[in-house]
């Protein structure tokens, strides 16, 4: 297993290189003149030329990319055009807030979805199943930024239970976490239910019953571990949409995280900042997927034995 983890960590390197190239390349397609954006429309041509030269923007894409990668290897994500500060510092100072949001959002989603999914599956077609499936369907269909707005209307403007923005204290966390986690929760609930339904029809579940294993034990000891395999996959994939969703949730709640920084940077055409955010998010996503793969091996011995 250790070897596998190390191997996977090493495999992150080409992914980071690939991702950074992809994002760098896309950003380099941007029309318009960065120096002009920084200095404003009225800036003299000479100043713009000078700044372009200074920022190295006159060099071909590949050379600029090479320079960028050398920096990246040293943990340097370049300098923000807008603030003139190191992008790495700027992103990292906001990263804990985003991580906090994503972490609690995922916890909220997982803690609620898996029990609901199990109950739905074991009581298929019951009232509780129908109700949770309707909620799950609505949860998948509801855009999180709209849900956020509705929560603000209900719980902060009218009931005044929670603040509508900021990040101070646990109260500020409640609405953003629900906003961010609901979509994931709905998806994971549906996956848990269908996976559980599939598993409880398997022959080995019948074998367990024929052995005299009691109902609860059949579900929680024999079925659940098998049913979790696809659920873990979905949780990993959902983490990607969670990061995307964090950008929107942060926008709704003026949460001072990387998402807000990213949106502002995009609007300001601050290429190094955008690049930095997307690369950090992608690395984060890759690490989560690595964790998912390891968890996978932990649950399923068939996968584990492949890595030995």
């Amino acid at each position: 297993m250790h070897k596998y983890v190390i191997k996977r960590l090493i495999m992150l390197i080409p992914v980071v290189i690939g991702v950074s190239f992809l994002v760098f390349f896309i950003m380099s397609l941007a029309p318009g003149d960065t120096a002009r954006t920084i200095l404003g429309e009225d800036a003299p041509i000479e100043a713009i030329e000078a700044l372009n030269e200074e920022l190295g923007l006159n060099d071909p894409v590949l050379i600029r990319y090479g320079r960028y990668m050398v920096g990246l290897a040293h943990g340097d994500l370049g300098t923000s055009y807008k603030s003139g500060r190191s992008v790495f510092t700027e992103v990292m100072s906001r990263f804990p807030d985003t991580l906090k949001l994503a972490f609690w959002g995922m916890i909220f989603a997982v803690v609620l979805s898996i029990p609901i999914g199990i109950i739905s599956a074991t009581k298929q077609y019951s009232l509780i199943d129908s109700v949770s499936m309707v909620f799950a369907l609505l949860g998948v269909a509801t855009p999180n930024f709209w849900l956020g707005l509705m929560l603000i209307i209900g719980f902060s403007l009218h009931l005044r239970w929670f603040p509508s923005g900021g990040s101070e204290g646990w109260k500020a966390l409640v609405l953003p976490v629900i906003t961010l986690g609901t979509g994931c929760m709905a998806n994971i609930t549906r996956t848990t239910r269908s996976s559980m339904l599939e598993v409880i029809r398997q022959d080995y579940i019948r074998t367990a019953k024929a052995k005299g294993v009691g109902y609860r034990s059949v579900i929680y000891k024999h079925a659940l571990k098998n049913a979790l395999i696809p659920v873990v996959t979905v949780i990993g994939l959902q983490f990607g949409s969670l990061l995307g969703g964090a950008v929107l949730t942060e926008a709704v709640f003026s949460w001072p995280g990387v998402g807000t920084y990213l949106v502002n940077s995009i609007k300001a055409k601050d290429t190094p900042a955008v690049l930095g955010c997307v690369i950090i998010f992608s690395i984060c996503f890759s690490i989560v997927n690595l964790c998912v793969d390891i968890l996978y091996a932990y649950i399923d011995p068939r996968i584990k034995s492949k890595y030995k």
């Binding site: 992914v15 690939g18 991702v19 992809l22 994002v23 990607g240 949409s241 990061l243 995307g244 969703g245 950008v247 929107l248 990213l262 997307v278 998010f281 992608s282 996503f285 890759s286």
Partner: peptide, 9 residues
């Protein structure tokens, strides 16, 4: 590599 970037991003 495309999949490593969350699609909304």
């Amino acid at each position: 590599i495309f999949l490593a970037v969350p699609s909304t991003l």
